[in-house]
Structure formats: structure tokens, C-alpha cells
Computed example of a mutant assay.
Amino acid sequence: MSQKQKITHPDDVETIVTDWTTAKVLCGPDVDGSEQMGAVALFFEPGQGHSRHIHHDADQIIYVVSGRGEHVAERADGTSVTEKVAAGSLIFIPKGHYHSTFNTGWEPMRVLAVFSPAAPVQALRAVGDSGGVGTAEMRIVPAGVTPARK
């Protein structure tokens, strides 16, 4: 085994602030050297989320830590299915499937997104994007610094 086990604490990594989320990459090539898995903690304010997008080369799991929302899954035949999600819900998205998730509640929705392999976490860090979600506003807040609200 060439890699060592590692614990990543949220205060030890930078915060990515975009117009659709506040995020922390907790696992991936730039954090712990992992190429096979990536993990991102995401916080969606009420009414926010990630728009329809696809990961062509990575499976994804979204685990809802708190809050509630809706997840739209696009089936192979092009039809869409919208399902309510809440704390404890786990969404599996195979590579090559369009999807979107939005906070429909009154409080922040916290999710943990896990990717295999880790490539989508690099996209989020590079351009404030998660598989096709463009953003006009993105800033990186250094580790240990609390991001200010607009």
C-alpha cells in the first residue's frame, strides 16, 4: 500500500463559494492524493441547488445530511422522475445520467457528494462547476477562514 489513511477536517481545507453552493472538497487528488474517490460537502441555501448536468466518467452518491429538497433523475428513455429527499436519503447516480438536486425547504440543505473516480471534485475546485453547472461568481476562501455572506 502506497497511500496512508488520512482524516480531513473541514477547517483544514479551503471553502469554495459559488452562486449555487458553499462547498468543501474533503477527499480527492489535491486533498489526500485519492484518484479513485472524491468527496465534497455541499451546503445549499433555500431555493438553491445544482442544475441539470451529467458526469460522463464518474458514478456519484449524494447523501442528504440535513434539510429537504427534490432530486430529478433523468432515465435512459429521456423521461424525468422527481423525488423528494430529506435527511438520511441516499441518491445513487450512475455515470452518464443527467440529474439535479435543489433545496425546497426553509433551512440550508447539507449533502455529501461522493464520486468514483474523483475527477468531478477537480472540476468544482477549478471553475466552481460540478459536471456542467456554470457559475458567474466563485471565490476560494482559505482554510480556517469563515466565508462571509454576501
Score class of each variant (00 low, 15 high):
residue 113 A to M: 05
residue 55 H to F: 03
residue 81 V to H: 10
residue 116 S to W: 02
residue 75 R to N: 14
residue 132 G to S: 07
residue 122 Q to T: 12
residue 128 G to M: 09
residue 125 R to Q: 13
residue 69 G to Q: 02
residue 55 H to K: 04
residue 57 D to I: 06
residue 52 R to W: 08
residue 99 H to M: 09
residue 98 Y to V: 03
residue 122 Q to R: 07
residue 90 L to Q: 11
residue 98 Y to M: 08
residue 58 A to W: 00
residue 109 M to E: 02
residue 99 H to C: 04
residue 110 R to I: 08
residue 77 D to Y: 07
residue 98 Y to L: 10
residue 123 A to P: 00
residue 122 Q to W: 06
residue 62 I to D: 00
residue 54 I to M: 04
residue 124 L to F: 15
residue 117 P to S: 08
residue 52 R to S: 12
residue 73 A to Y: 15
residue 56 H to G: 07
residue 89 S to A: 13
residue 113 A to P: 02
residue 72 V to Y: 05
residue 139 R to M: 12
residue 107 E to M: 05
residue 50 H to S: 08
residue 108 P to Y: 04
residue 57 D to A: 10
residue 67 G to Q: 07
residue 87 A to M: 03
residue 69 G to N: 04
residue 110 R to E: 15
residue 102 F to K: 09
residue 71 H to M: 13
residue 127 V to Q: 12
residue 48 Q to M: 11
residue 122 Q to I: 09
residue 98 Y to G: 08
residue 121 V to E: 15
residue 107 E to C: 03
residue 108 P to S: 09
residue 105 G to E: 11
residue 49 G to K: 03
residue 70 E to L: 08
residue 76 A to C: 02
residue 79 T to I: 02
residue 119 A to Y: 10
residue 129 D to L: 08
residue 48 Q to T: 05
residue 122 Q to H: 06
residue 93 I to V: 14
residue 119 A to S: 13
residue 99 H to E: 06
residue 139 R to F: 06
residue 50 H to D: 12
residue 136 A to G: 15
residue 74 E to H: 05
residue 82 T to S: 15
residue 86 A to R: 15
residue 72 V to P: 05
residue 68 R to W: 00
residue 137 E to T: 10
residue 114 V to S: 02
residue 131 G to C: 06
residue 78 G to I: 05
residue 129 D to H: 08
residue 117 P to G: 05
residue 70 E to P: 00
residue 64 V to Y: 00
residue 124 L to H: 05
residue 90 L to K: 03
residue 84 K to V: 14
residue 69 G to L: 01
residue 76 A to T: 07
residue 133 V to F: 01
residue 132 G to Q: 11
residue 76 A to P: 07
residue 91 I to L: 14
residue 50 H to V: 12
residue 60 Q to M: 10
residue 82 T to K: 15
residue 77 D to H: 09
residue 128 G to F: 11
residue 66 S to T: 12
residue 105 G to W: 04
residue 75 R to Q: 14
residue 88 G to Y: 02
residue 51 S to A: 15
residue 131 G to I: 04
residue 94 P to M: 07
residue 70 E to M: 10
residue 114 V to N: 00
residue 107 E to G: 03
residue 92 F to M: 11
residue 83 E to M: 11
residue 56 H to V: 05
residue 112 L to P: 00
residue 93 I to Y: 04
residue 86 A to T: 10
residue 119 A to G: 01
residue 57 D to L: 09
residue 51 S to R: 12
residue 133 V to Q: 07
residue 58 A to E: 07
residue 98 Y to S: 08
residue 100 S to L: 13
residue 48 Q to L: 13
residue 57 D to H: 12
residue 53 H to G: 07
residue 113 A to V: 14
residue 49 G to T: 07
residue 103 N to C: 09
residue 93 I to H: 05
residue 64 V to P: 00
residue 108 P to T: 11
residue 121 V to F: 10
residue 54 I to N: 01
residue 103 N to R: 01
residue 49 G to I: 02
residue 97 H to W: 02
residue 122 Q to L: 13
residue 117 P to F: 12
residue 91 I to H: 01
residue 86 A to H: 15
residue 93 I to Q: 13
residue 110 R to F: 02
residue 139 R to T: 13
residue 77 D to K: 08
residue 125 R to P: 00
residue 60 Q to H: 03
residue 126 A to F: 04
residue 72 V to L: 14
residue 129 D to A: 08
residue 50 H to P: 01
residue 90 L to I: 12
residue 81 V to D: 14
residue 89 S to Q: 09
residue 109 M to Y: 06
residue 112 L to D: 01
residue 135 T to L: 07
residue 82 T to Y: 06
residue 127 V to G: 11
residue 115 F to W: 04
residue 121 V to G: 06
residue 48 Q to F: 09
